[in-house]
């Protein structure tokens, strides 16, 4: 089984978020980047398929050379090969188009992408890859087993779970539940050393036009000070909730 895991290179969850160029661009200054957490759950599941079922795992990212440390970490965790499509990840459609091309050229049976990346939270890419490659698609996937060409997947739905059966080729949008946080792998020292020798192929992008562009970003208003109201002063509380917070 050939698995492709799509890896987004995203700011660490504790990063301070700022914007530049008139609030149109994310300020990467001083920001540490990591593997997108939803993708990391997927990568860890892919490693399980590698260990238990002998799958071959390739990781892919669309981005500039600065994203390579993230790919190399995935190699250190155990992926067999990495691909970087040399193009800035500007919008969901053009990223999906690049990834779809990689899928077509590489003949992958299973594509694992995160449900969404935690930077721009577009959530479009996995579905678009499936559409562009004519593969089956399961989003919000929290469980996946493969037997031959049959896949059994569990999907999170409102207030419950849905178990589905489908066939390969398949694209999933994975998330926590695919594996648990405690299953996430810390790259071991030997893995880190071996990552150096594994192939990291750089592909030139196919033509794709961004269908959407970011016009402006806004940060949520800073949290104001907490107002304490005496327990016997319910009128003041109601007044604040009604007139200031406007929630009742």
């Amino acid at each position: 089984m050939k698995i492709l895991v799509c890896i987004s290179h995203v700011p660490d969850t504790t990063s301070k978020i700022n914007f530049t160029e008139g609030d149109t661009k994310f300020d990467t200054n001083g920001v540490q980047f990591v593997i997108n957490p939803n993708d990391e759950f997927g990568l860890t599941r892919a490693m399980w398929f590698k260990e238990k079922q002998g799958a071959n795992v390739t990781v892919v990212n669309v981005g500039g050379a600065e994203t390579e440390p993230t790919l190399r970490k995935a190699l250190a965790i155990g992926a067999d090969a990495a691909i970087r499509v040399n193009r800035a990840a500007t919008d969901g459609f053009s990223v999906a188009k690049q990834l779809a091309q990689v899928v077509k050229d590489g003949g992958y049976d299973l594509v694992i992408a995160g449900r969404e990346s935690i930077d721009y939270n577009g959530g479009m890419v996995p579905g678009m890859i499936a559409g562009l490659t004519n593969a089956n698609f399961i989003n919000n996937c929290i469980g996946l087993e493969i037997e031959g060409t049959t896949a059994k997947a569990i999907r999170e739905i409102d207030g419950g779970k849905e178990t589905l059966s489908t066939t390969l080729p398949l694209v999933i949008g994975g998330q926590k539940g695919l594996v648990e946080e405690s299953d996430l792998k810390i790259p071991n020292m030997r893995g880190i050393m071996m990552a150096r020798q594994k192939p990291l192929t750089i592909l030139e992008p196919v033509e794709a036009t961004a269908e959407t562009t970011s016009v402006k970003f806004e940060k949520p208003a800073p949290k104001g000070a907490v107002k304490l109201i005496a327990p016997d002063n319910l009128d003041a509380l109601v007044d604040l909730l009604h007139n200031e917070a406007k929630v009742i």
Binding site: E68, R72, K73, A76, I186, N188, I192, M193, A195, R196
Partner: peptide
């Protein structure tokens, strides 16, 4: 080096977790 940086992150992750 990038490798040393990765080692550093791996050790930190171990300590944190």
């Amino acid at each position: 080096t990038e490798e040393q940086q990765m080692m550093k992150e791996a050790v930190k992750e171990f300590v944190d977790r």
